[in-house]
Write a protein that binds this DNA or RNA. Structure first.
Lengths: 120, 120
DNA sequence: CATTTGTTATATTTATACTATAACACAACG
DNA sequence: CGTTGTGTTATAGTATAAATATAACAAATG
């Protein structure tokens, strides 16, 4: 699973990391039960501080994407059942609003969404 | 058009403002050609600094939602044709990824999207 | 001329992001 | 038992962004 950080981006490094890992899970590039590199290892690879990676992992942990233990590192274990949909819905709401402002119909938008889903 | 700021939110005030105005436009609570309160006036209403409101307005201006002039204040004039879709697509991509991780099908997700579109 | 508008400028405070080091607790390995 | 590699916690520092506070300027209105 390839991770690429854009240091010139306005998006925080730990957010970029978190997002790319979520994408990796969705694409099944990394599957349930498999491990991510340790915080120190990945930090070294990316040329980033340990705490930045740890922040991303902790975020993913609290979101129900993985668990962490001292031996096997960060292990993917999807348990999103108990994670609330609030933030996801808020994000969808904004996208829908912007799409409508752009003159897109509901069909236009759902077409784009399902296209993204296929290409995942 | 009612605007409500959550000072306890982790979302920046100017982003909350920007989002609610975009929602207001999408809901047609405020229409093309109509004016928003002046930066000083809205800042006063919300108990917020003038520059915070100005930042939200400037953002909306650069995104093609409105224009500003010294007399009529911030006037809604939607011109999103030349505004790139990059950020919107990036946001959609992440939502699709998260939805798939949650076990939602493309149909599940598009159903939610079109529901949001209707309720707008 | 006085008022209101957006605009620009400067400075300060606060919060967040990121880095740097260090130490601790736990389990595995030899 | 000692070493190594984990996550975890702590502390401190720097840099950037958010928000506030004042002030002044330019343009148009009444």
């Amino acid at each position: 699973m390839v991770i690429n950080i854009d240091f010139g981006s306005d998006e925080a490094i730990y957010v970029q990391l978190r997002n790319q890992i979520v994408l990796g899970i969705a694409k099944e590039e990394i599957k349930n039960g498999e491990s991510l590199p340790s915080v120190r290892q990945l930090a070294d690879e990316l040329g980033v501080n340990m705490h930045t990676v740890n922040k991303a992992y902790s975020m993913l942990k609290s979101e129900g994407y993985l668990t962490m233990n001292r031996q096997r590192g960060a292990v993917i274990s999807i348990e999103l059942e108990s994670v609330p949909y609030d933030e996801m819905y808020a994000a969808i709401k904004m996208i829908v609003a912007e799409a409508k402002c752009r003159g897109m119909s509901a069909e236009d938008l759902t077409k784009i969404v399902s296209d993204f889903y296929e290409r995942l």
